[in-house]
């Protein structure tokens, strides 16, 4: 998923056997597929042979046996998040990008992550610490980052962080710690031991009661404790023909939204000024109301 010096997206880079591609049907329908010589993909558009894909550049339009098409995109952590979103409760892109920014994660950082989710944040953390940093993820189940090609940047261990805390070997070495736990306050003392001075902790909790309890636990060793909520509003764009008052009444249905630009001459003699199409935006109805609270805090500097 992540570029290296010799292997990055370019005009000449083609899809090869073993590559991970994101099959894009629509903006709300994507699927991750590992390309394999003999593989086939079946969906509502028909049957796609992987062998047809090999050798084509990323981003290509490919056709099924029935002549319908999908796009094959190069994977990114954002697309990966969209692919995962069908599975479990995950962190969304707005939260993820804010976490990376506020944790001040840059290449070379050592990041400890403790989470129960599907690992949608982990790919973004790995992208941010690459090429020299590392993400140590403690999870309730062993997961595979082989598929996304991140196994050199991510180490997963099964560990009960709330009960045992982080392993002592990271004491004072972590640049940032991320907690996604039901009772984060239990892990906060351990997280404080892991962090370098002035290092940053983030805790993600869906309920304000959890935030309060965590904030209370943070007060003794941390400073700059701040809680945020971030949401993303999306917009729909349409080209609309507006009818002016002066226009003839017979064509008042012209104000229906139309997706494509239409010739403005249909049955309207001389009234073109009143019906010029305008591009307009409106908020999409499906906006998520609440994801969770992000609490950030900085380890106090005592020496």
């Amino acid at each position: 998923m992540l570029p290296t010096d010799s292997r990055k997206l370019s005009f000449s880079r083609c899809i090869a056997d073993g590559d991970l591609v994101i099959v894009y049907e629509r903006h709300d329908n994507m699927k991750a597929v590992k390309v394999c010589d003999t593989g086939v993909l079946q969906n509502r558009f028909g049957v796609f042979k992987h062998s047809d894909w090999i050798g084509k550049p990323f981003g290509s339009k490919v056709f099924s046996n029935t002549g319908r098409f999908v796009y094959l995109l190069a994977p990114t952590p954002e697309l990966w998040t969209l692919v995962l979103s069908h599975r479990t409760q995950i962190l969304y892109i707005a939260d993820i990008s804010l976490v990376i920014m506020y944790l001040e994660i840059i290449p070379g950082c050592l990041v400890l992550e403790s989470g129960t989710g599907s690992g949608s944040l982990t790919t973004s953390l790995a992208r941010a610490v690459a090429p020299t940093g590392h993400v140590h993820r403690a999870a309730s189940a062993r997961e595979d980052f082989e598929r996304t090609g991140l196994s050199s940047l991510v180490t997963v261990a099964v560990r009960d962080i709330q009960g045992e805390g982080f392993p002592d070997i990271f004491c004072g070495l972590a640049d940032s710690v991320f907690l996604d736990l039901p009772q984060p306050w239990l892990a906060i003392p351990s997280a404080g031991k892991m962090l370098k001075q002035d290092g940053i902790l983030c805790s993600f909790s869906p309920c304000i009661e959890q935030v309060q309890h965590s904030s209370e636990a943070l007060r003794s060793n941390f400073t700059d404790i701040r809680t945020f909520e971030i949401l993303l509003r999306t917009y729909e764009v349409r080209e609309v023909k507006m009818e002016s008052c002066q226009g003839d009444e017979g064509s008042s249905l012209g104000s229906l939204p139309c997706k494509r630009r239409q010739p403005s001459s249909e049955g309207r003699n001389g009234s073109e000024i009143s019906s010029s199409p305008t591009v307009m935006a409106r908020t999409s109805g499906e906006a998520r109301g609440h994801t969770g609270y992000l609490t950030f805090a900085r380890l106090k500097c005592v020496t």
Partner: peptide, 15 residues
Amino acid sequence: VGLQISEPWIREYQV
């Protein structure tokens, strides 16, 4: 493909 216009909305809480 995959075009989207979005507006982030952030607010800070006093806990």
